[in-house]
Simulated scan of single mutants.
Amino acid sequence: MYVGIDHSTTGIKVAAIGDDGELTTAFRIDRRNVETAGAFLEVLDDRIGLSRVSLATVTYAFGNAIDEIEGIEDVPNRGTTDLVGLDYGTGAGATVFDRLYDSAVPTVVLPGVHRGLDTLHAFFRHYSALAGADKVASMRYALERFRAEFDASGAFIWVCASSSCMAGLVCGGRLTGFFHWVGPVHGWPDPEAVRRGVESDFEDVFMRCGLLPRRGADLTDVHDIADRDLLQSVYWSTLMNVYALYPFARDLGADGLDAVVLSGRLMRRERPFPLGRRVYEACVDLAPVRFAEPYTSAQGAALVARDVAAGADEVLGIPVGDVPGGRDR
């Protein structure tokens, strides 16, 4: 059995798949339970059985200290260069990572999207980091789920509307581009945010630049956004990411797009604003639009574990290092 583990704003998401890649279980653990009790391995053993895990993949933060998929025991600082601006150095994600590190569960760590990935178009290496490893895992899910619709040189855009609004471009099975500007919780700093950071600290600067904090709302409001205007802003942010990536597909040799894959819990919202339906209508002229199911990041991480165990040299163009559980390396 292969397991994927992702920490998100709403909780720790876990998915398990068999050798055939079929999902056997997926569930979410409340972040607070992990942070206070650290009971992650106990829950995993109860729900799945630790002895049944052939290989697990964990995602953590930006994942910008590694350029390859590596064994957890070889990853420094949980795979991050630093946590400036992220404000979860001691949260549930860190707890899960450390529990896995100290356990006997064979585990690999997935890089995030950052300038060190050779697979990226040169334009996207301007920023030192663009997104966490969970987004890479989600794109691996999209490639698997809709593989029948892509030819070997095809291209698709995966787009997420959740705590963040992000989109990634995959061409010929390789991660080649990524955009992230602003979402409900996270956003890139502007001069005002930099000034405030200098005056106080940078620990949570990215958490202060999203749509919710800029409106003075509590970040817990992300669990049930009822503001129609805010959801419309999420819609525009989502479209900006998709349409900004589209020209790169042609520049990289793709003959148009094979699909646009919509992901994230806000894509499933109908009230007070039908976000997913509106994005569908705006993108359907670019390519066939497909909706992803829940737990895509955890499922994608589980698929990465299966890839590694099968002896894959790369996943989405990201090299696989010398890791435990990999065969024929």
Rank of each mutant, 00 (worst) to 15 (best):
S153M: 07
I157L: 04
L143D: 05
C160F: 04
R147A: 11
G116E: 05
S164H: 05
L130R: 11
G172F: 08
S163I: 00
G132I: 03
A133G: 15
A133N: 12
D118G: 14
A133Q: 13
A133S: 15
R145V: 04
H121F: 12
A155D: 01
A142C: 14
S164Q: 05
H121G: 08
A131H: 12
D151E: 02
W181P: 01
L120K: 09
E144M: 11
V170E: 03
W158K: 12
V170C: 05
G177E: 08
L120D: 12
R140E: 08
G154S: 02
L169S: 03
G132H: 09
C160M: 12
F123W: 07
C165H: 03
M166N: 14
R145D: 09
M166R: 12
G132K: 09
D134P: 15
F179L: 09
I157N: 03
V170I: 06
T119L: 02
V159Q: 15
A142L: 12
R174H: 08
S153C: 06
M139V: 11
R140Q: 07
S128D: 13
L175G: 08
S153R: 15
R145I: 03
Y127P: 11
V113W: 04
S164Y: 00
A137W: 14
A155N: 03
C165P: 00
C160H: 11
F178V: 10
I157E: 02
R174A: 09
L117H: 07
G173R: 02
G132N: 08
F150S: 02
T176K: 11
A148R: 02
R125A: 09
C165E: 03
G168W: 03
F123R: 06
